[in-house]
């Protein structure tokens, strides 16, 4: 069976893999037999090997070097390009994060291949589905040159376990000077949240300008916590200083695709839709019956969020 390289995205604390990796392994199985590629500082692979095998990695290719962590993106692309040259895989699948896309692009140039970004599905014949124009258009596309490279949008494929051998192979890593041009001097964490990660959460509750203040965002957090959900925000809420930028959903924020998206006090501007339109169920609370968000809501409540949302939180908590 043809080999498909899957680039592993590990959790920031190194304790495991991000859900995107399991999704990529699952999607890759349509094309062949996945080999998970773990690239990072020494010690990166040990904590993640088992889960990779559990999700279908026939092989786990481990390239560990301090240079991979010390320089931005380029070393990973270089190692992957070497693997593509050595092993002629049927395809490469990479989680569609900003870093993943940069790696995909560099890999495409290095290997003379085409790439498709932000795909939501990959069929056995290599045809991929992309969602264009803020979710309004569904596109089918195919790579016609070289080794197809895909970046897979988070939360589009449900991860399915499928035990495989997970046979470990060490890759010799030597990073060229050309790949050592951008140094990562520091990695700074500014906000830590105990809530689920926005892009991985099954439920997202987002607040907009209608929430009216930073203090009042506790209403959004309250509903989110009653549902075990992540909190998101519109750009207007972020720009008004109600909530930090890293929680912004939309074109220039995060793209989310949860089971349930609850938009509270958000009008539904096209740039906001770009980040949430593929959510399975959409619920909106807005006092303006004409708000465009209602056009895509499966369930809408026309009302004041200050009364509707706390009452809903209370009832959800009472059901537990």
């Amino acid at each position: 069976m043809a080999e498909v390289l899957v680039l592993v995205e590990t959790a920031p604390d190194g304790s495991g893999v991000r859900k995107t990796t399991l999704e990529a392994l699952t999607a890759a199985r349509a094309l062949g037999e996945p080999s998970a590629v773990v690239l990072g500082a020494p010690g990166t692979a040990a904590p993640v090997k088992d889960v990779l095998a559990e999700y279908g990695a026939a092989k786990v290719l481990v390239g560990e070097s301090d240079d991979i962590d010390a320089y931005l993106v380029a070393p990973k692309a270089e190692v992957l390009a070497q693997l593509v040259a050595d092993r002629s895989p049927a395809a490469v699948v990479i989680p569609s994060t900003p870093e993943g896309k940069e790696i995909a692009g560099r890999l495409a140039i290095k290997t003379g291949s085409g790439f498709l970004t932000d795909v939501t599905e990959i069929a056995a014949d290599g045809t991929a589905t992309q969602v264009a124009f803020a979710g309004a258009t569904i596109v089918h596309a195919k790579v016609t040159t070289g080794t197809p490279i895909y970046t897979l949008r988070g939360n589009s494929v449900a991860p399915e376990a499928s035990a495989a051998a997970g046979e470990e192979e060490t890759i010799a890593v030597s990073v060229s000077d050309a790949a050592k041009q951008t140094r990562v001097v520091d990695r700074v964490v500014e906000q830590k949240s105990d809530r689920p990660d926005l892009t991985e959460a099954a439920i997202v509750v987002s607040g907009g300008r209608g929430v009216a203040s930073a203090e009042n965002f506790s209403i959004i957090e309250g509903l989110a916590d009653s549902l075990g959900a992540a909190v998101g925000a519109s750009r207007a809420a972020v720009d008004s200083g109600f909530y930090p930028h890293s929680f912004q959903v939309g074109q220039t924020g995060k793209t989310v695709s949860p089971q349930l998206y609850i938009a509270v006090g958000i009008s539904g501007a096209i740039q906001h839709r770009a980040g949430m339109q593929t959510s399975k169920s959409i619920v909106a609370v807005n006092k303006d019956p004409e708000a465009p968000i209602f056009e895509l809501a499966d369930f809408g409540v026309v009302g004041d969020l200050n009364t509707v949302v706390p009452a809903a939180t209370e009832q959800i908590t009472a059901r537990k």
Partner: peptide, 26 residues
Amino acid sequence: TSQVLDFAGRPPKGEGVKVTDEGDGA
């Protein structure tokens, strides 16, 4: 290096339900 094979408008969602809060919205 890549080619769009076909495209279509996203299938319209089924008509959603919209209720007006009269104390029973939650």
